[in-house]
Design a protein around this nucleic acid. Structure first.
Lengths: 115, 115
DNA sequence: GTGATGCGTAACTCATGTGTTACGCATTAG
DNA sequence: CTAATGCGTAACACATGAGTTACGCATCAC
């Protein structure tokens, strides 16, 4: 019943830059500098983003000389996945309803956002 | 490659009150008043949260007289689920690594948050 | 030792977000 | 018609967040 804590990471994932960092780290360990070089913002800004990700448990750091190697920790994502689970039924249901409509011969338009 | 857009809803889900609203709506349609009554904040505050959820596609509204019935739309959650997919391998890998450790006879502590 | 490099933190500014109260508008009750 | 109800919006206050530059502190190169 600790759903609130289980999805603390959502706050961290709300920022697009941080999601991109996560995406980069999914490819393997990177140093702070390597990561910062990929973004149009200043290095301290990335440093702060990395701190947020660290504090929410999404990444871990390994000091190596004067370099800091960041790595993705998938645990919070796994928990998010778990949090999502009760909702899976809902879209399954919806798909079922859709299939029913199709079975009835109705025209089933797939909803697609215009923008 | 439109991952950024696919997870727009993360911004909406970052707020705990909105997540709770989502949770309530998972149980079925509710009116704005019914929802607002459940929270310690003012009704206009909830109204604004509902607006955010509406704009991110997480809920839909149906006007019925002077009542507004809100319902959960699971589509953005489904997309979030999709976004999560590439990362599933990561925690699967980690579990594999863990099993390997166990097979080696090492002590494998399950990580558990103290709070 | 001395200077360059890698990276985090501090201090500050500006934009955004979340809460409040006051209000308006439509709908139902009498 | 008149009053009450349900709910959204406007206007404002305050907290939070993300960016910047300046700085400090290790570590590596020489």
């Amino acid at each position: 019943m600790c759903y609130a804590l289980a999805v603390e990471a959502l706050q961290a994932l709300a920022d697009p830059t941080r999601r991109e960092l996560i995406g980069l780290l999914a490819g393997g360990e990177r140093t702070a500098g390597e990561l910062a070089a990929r973004f149009p913002v200043s290095r301290p800004a990335i440093s702060r983003h990395l701190r947020v990700l660290r504090e929410s448990g999404l990444v871990s750091v390994r000091a190596d000389g004067r370099e800091r190697h960041y790595a993705l920790d998938p645990e919070p994502l796994r928990r998010l996945d778990e949090w999502l689970e009760p909702y899976r039924d809902l879209w399954a249901q919806r798909l079922d309803a859709l299939e029913t409509e199709i079975a009835r011969g109705r025209r089933a338009r797939t909803r697609r956002e215009p923008t």
